[in-house]
């Protein structure tokens, strides 16, 4: 059992980890995938680098810095974060890690794909949580929109409840192994008025479905948040000035909380989240 698990190893997650570790907390950082920072060719507007620094170098330095002071860092894809009696269980593809506090610093992931009809049909057949809403689709036909392990994991949560589940990649390549039916055609629209009725593809073909579950790419901060019951503001996690969410012991920082998508903002919020988490743990004792 860790004191704090931080999901995400960008500037926000690392900064939170540094402050928490320096306060003698037992910290695990789990990350996977590409960080936005890693992809930035050069960062010219961050304090202290005379000639700028490549995003990749800044990102890798951050991870090494955290490891050097005793933060445990693991590269694993997180599929879900669940609440337990005394904290959180962070589920990766192969493992489950538990902690008293969890900090979501996964960056800004788009929750919704740009498909006509999605927003209008939310709560009317469009869902973001298989485990929460699968119940409403007993013996019905559903699809999961996504192309990674996260989509497969959502499909697995549905397969014992629904009649049929298919994965639609919306024009992308399927990046995970699966035995589920996969359709890679690009989607043009989700059809329905009061309820989801069908999916229309760009080639003009339609298939009848009752439910559409969204699970794009890798699961991100807003995906985890929705399943736990964190209040979101559009795709961003809503936090107070201490980076606390509405769920006790759960914090978020950096691009996950929206606003300015800058390293400086992420570092600041990470520091606040780390210190708030430490305070919460100390007061809980």
């Amino acid at each position: 059992m860790y004191d704090i698990i931080i999901v995400g190893a960008g500037p926000a997650g690392i900064s939170a980890g540094l402050y928490a570790r320096r306060a003698n907390k037992n910290v695990l950082i789990i990350y996977s995938g590409e960080s936005n920072l890693e992809k930035a060719e050069k960062i010219d507007n961050y304090y202290g680098f005379v000639n700028g620094i490549s995003g990749k170098d800044l990102y890798e330095n951050g991870i090494r810095q955290a490891e050097n002071i005793g933060v445990e860092v693991k590269k694993e894809e997180v599929l879900n974060i669940e609440m337990t009696l005394d904290g959180f269980a962070v589920k990766t593809i192969d493992n489950v890690y538990e902690s008293s506090v969890c900090i979501i610093a996964t960056g800004n992931k788009k929750l919704r794909p740009n498909i006509k009809g999605i927003i209008e049909l939310e709560g009317k057949g469009v869902s973001y949580c298989a485990i929460c809403d699968g119940f409403f689709y007993r013996n019905k036909n559903v699809v999961v929109i996504g192309n990674g392990k996260y989509a497969v994991s959502e499909a697995k949560d549905l397969e014992n409840i629904v009649q049929n589940v298919k994965i639609l990649t919306d024009g992308k390549e399927m990046e995970a192994d699966t035995t589920f039916d996969v359709d890679t055609r690009k989607i043009s629209q989700i059809i329905g008025e009061d309820r989801v009725e069908a999916i229309k593809f760009e080639d003009g073909d339609t298939i009848d479905v009752n439910g559409v579950f969204i699970a794009l790419g890798e699961a991100g901060g807003s995906d985890f948040a929705k399943k736990i019951g964190v209040i979101l503001d559009k795709d961003s996690i809503k936090v107070d000035e201490n980076m606390a969410t509405n769920v006790k012991g759960l914090y978020s920082c950096g691009n996950s909380t929206g606003g300015l998508l800058q390293v400086s903002k992420a570092v600041y919020e990470g520091a606040v989240a780390g210190l708030s988490a430490v305070k919460y743990l100390n007061e809980r004792k």
Partner: peptide
């Protein structure tokens, strides 16, 4: 709501 729904408990 339902008893098995995590977000519902949060609400």
């Amino acid at each position: 709501y339902a008893d098995w729904c995590g977000p519902c408990k949060m609400m």
